[in-house]
Design a protein around this nucleic acid. Structure first.
Lengths: 322, 322
DNA sequence: ACCGGTTAGTCAACCGGTTAAGCACCGGTA
DNA sequence: TACCGGTGCTTAACCGGTTGACTAACCGGT
């Protein structure tokens, strides 16, 4: 069709082009992105995959700024964004192939959505993928995030400088999902800071507030000589829950126990929590940019980028009690 | 194709069905939503239209919870969500027909995205539309929001009860866009509260912080006998900016001037601002539900629903100075 | 009048589903 | 045997674009 040629700026005589444009205007014509997509043309749409545990991503202190970054980049890159709402793992054996329904050119997966055992299924979708804040170390998957090793090292270093020798890590991730590198990074950081690894604790997995209370109870039940003097929580939310739990047990922060969070969310600012700031919006923007680059074929191998983090020292960490 | 019959639970013999399902499994088959959509079948996707002034909707104190509600409803309703990122009004004369590209079955427009003069263009898109927090009073457009009249009346009533007689309204909306009903509601509320309308002020449009400073300057320049003793801001963001501006001028809140916000965002809680709470998440959920109802043909006329609001009295309003 | 080359526009096929019509088969009824 | 209705599967057409092959027209040069 000549119309198609006009739309795609193909060589068409000026008179014909004018005729076509005039007809388009009269008919209020809008080409169907769907019909175009049927022929394997790009849809100019980025698909967003979220872990099914978060049904309020746009109010989440981590997901919201990341999404913001993605949206901001999408505006500049002239891409629309489709958020897939379906449960990730519900349909037995279906895997993730539903994302191959042709609506999105590529996928951005935020957070630790799926266990490593299902990564192959995700790769089988066949779409270019960028994961954000996750690290599957697969040649087919691009990743943007932070250097957990460096970040934990800085936090532990800060605590060590304050004299802390017994530090606990509150994992805070549902054990169904792979714990990821932050836990390992914690132990490495403990050693790097010259502390005895066997004095570190990390046996407190569990994302929900009640479980946090369990972890707090374990800590408070320990004799003072063995009790950790500092707690590194997986994120700010957990740190604040921990502080609350400790307060209920009559333990003061930071006088008795220091607590650190992660992410530097507004809650951490409000709660005056020492934490690790990561540029979530930038990470989201970069993720979208990488996906578009991959779609354009501008890049070859898998991309794995990390952004710098920055420790923010506030009022929940202090020198160890004499 | 028999496959299509199997997928749609049409009458197919059990043996054939099994064969098909087995083949689907072997081939890792995923039907193309695009090809299906080409035949005017629903895409099961809700389109979100945002005003181009907000490039960070998922961090916005109003847009984020509304989006959350939409997403939560979409999960339950088995719909995906596509956020259109393009500038709403950039392409001359194109109007909004780009939303008719077939990717979404209907549109949800959040906030005052477009001036009333362009509403017809929006209707011409031909898709079912739900606007949220906006009121075009068109038979083709469904709406969810709040009763601005009641809400403003409650705020003004509250101020009147505290003895305020001269109240200013800070419009706070870019004048390029229709001001909407909240301003009119303010004047009605002033009269309903038995106050003299001519003592009310509302000549301070402008959304940005610098403009707010202008408005504050106008107020502070007024002689005490004419100066408003209370200010109703369009939203919490503006209220807080106003409070800051007043503080710079050495005017105390609420001792010298009372200030009210709108929306009851986290910032209002943190700033201890008297404000009007609206159930943003519920509004978003209901908007999505209405759109789906319309798509199903379950409803006839245009739907226009309002949710109840609730005044939240905090520390920025107090009795008028003697 | 013939020729090679470029340009402009038309035609047919295709993408991958859905839909409607067609057809073979079968049991029941007249 | 003829007719009928229902079932199960196949075939053809269609949705609305894109793509590539093909035709038609135009051009200057011999």
């Amino acid at each position: 069709m000549t119309v198609s040629n006009v739309m795609n700026n193909r060589p068409v005589s000026e008179s014909t082009r004018k005729q076509v444009l005039e007809a388009m205007r009269l008919l209020n014509y809008q080409p169907s992105a769907i019909a175009r997509g049927l022929n394997r043309k790009p849809m100019d749409t980025l698909g967003i995959v979220l872990p099914h545990t978060y049904h309020s991503p746009t109010s989440h202190p981590y997901y919201a700024p990341v999404l913001d970054g993605i949206m901001a980049a999408a505006v500049v890159l002239h891409k629309d964004v489709t958020i897939y709402t379906g449960n990730l793992c519900s349909e037995d054996g279906v895997g993730f192939r539903r994302y191959r329904d042709g609506r999105a050119d590529g996928l951005i997966m935020i957070g630790r959505a799926i266990p490593k055992s299902q990564v192959q299924s995700l790769i089988d979708v066949g779409l270019p993928i960028v994961t954000i804040g996750n690290y599957y170390e697969s040649p087919e998957i691009n990743t943007v995030g932070i250097d957990n090793g460096k970040s934990m090292a800085a936090l532990v270093r800060h605590l060590a400088d304050l004299g802390h020798e017994r530090i606990a890590f509150l994992e805070g991730v549902d054990d169904e999902v792979d714990a990821g590198p932050r836990l390992g990074a914690f132990f490495d950081a403990v050693e790097a800071a010259g502390l005895r690894r066997d004095l570190a604790h990390a046996q407190f997995p569990g994302f929900t507030a009640p479980k946090i209370q369990q972890a707090v109870d374990v800590i408070t039940a320990m004799p003072l000589s063995k009790r950790p003097t500092a707690v590194c929580a997986f994120n700010d939310e957990l740190a604040l829950a921990t502080i609350e739990g400790l307060a209920r047990a009559g333990i003061r922060v930071p006088e008795d126990i220091s607590v650190t969070g992660f992410d530097d969310t507004p809650a951490a600012i409000a709660g005056n929590v020492t934490t690790m700031r990561q540029p979530m919006r930038k990470i989201g923007m970069r993720g979208a940019q990488i996906l578009v680059d991959v779609l354009r074929g501008d890049v070859s191998g898998p991309i794995c980028e990390t952004f710098e983090t920055e420790i923010v020292v506030r009022g929940t960490t202090g020198p160890v009690k004499a």
